[in-house]
Amino acid sequence: MNDFIATEDRALLERHGLASFDALWNLKLQAVDEPNTERGGWSSVYRLDLGEAAYYLKRQSNYLTRSLARPFGEPTFAREFRNIRHYLELGIPALQAAFFAERKSAGERRAVLLTRALDGWQDLSHWLENWPSHGEATRSAVLKACGLLARRLHAAGQMHGCFYPKHIFLKVQGEGFDACLIDLEKTRPLLLGRRDRVKDLEPLLRRATAWREDDLRILLGAYLDDAADLDAWGARLLARQQRKETR
């Protein structure tokens, strides 16, 4: 895969001397959290502020994922970058990539992924923390935005695989909200129709413990084409949730 630099970000990165793999790999920054070391390598995330723009810089070494198409593995950021680009092509709102490249060096497989910071956005977890304190109009707008995001995702033939509150970002837009997705590593095509759709949505409901039945109906009302299916979908989601919670 060739190095990628987004047209909109090239001039800024060049002006700061950061338009190459080596420059981004060697940049001294403070990590925003503890590195992940689960796959025999490491992966870490840093915030990068360049005056008029902000980014998150992700670097990893020997942090690989394997699949039938790539049995010997590839950096997880390579898969995430492909999915970011695929979401863009499909019109699914998601985080945006500014730079991606990978290298093999001294027995290491390294990757760099630079994404634009979602400043001005808040993840759904933020809204769930004090859910009852938000006005009815705000709660309804959040639920509708999440339902419409899921609808666009599944209508495009994709399932996210980690449709959790911390991966759904929201921004106030007029009287409603825009919504987008992050963490696209586990995205895959919808293969089993309704079964995959239920599988994708149910983890959100299991984690959004502040939501009640009326909230679910608002979310499903935005998600479904036919309101007549609302009760059946609600029953399927709750049944799967109960099975998961009793395991």
Rank of each mutant, 00 (worst) to 15 (best):
F163V: 12
Y164F: 12
P165L: 13
P165R: 10
P165D: 07
H167E: 07
H167G: 06
I168L: 11
F169Q: 01
L170N: 04
K171T: 09
K171C: 13
V172C: 10
V172Q: 14
V172N: 14
Q173G: 15
Q173C: 15
Q173S: 15
Q173E: 15
G174S: 11
G174C: 07
E175M: 14
E175I: 13
E175F: 13
G176S: 13
G176Y: 02
F177P: 02
F177S: 00
D178M: 04
D178I: 09
D178T: 05
A179D: 06
C180P: 03
C180R: 09
L181F: 08
L181W: 01
L181Y: 05
L181C: 10
L181A: 01
I182R: 06
I182P: 03
I182W: 05
D183Q: 07
L184K: 13
L184T: 13
E185K: 14
E185F: 10
K186T: 11
K186E: 03
T187S: 11
T187P: 04
T187Q: 08
R188F: 01
P189N: 02
P189R: 01
L190H: 05
L190K: 11
L190D: 07
L191N: 02
L191E: 10
L192V: 05
L192M: 11
G193R: 01
D196A: 06
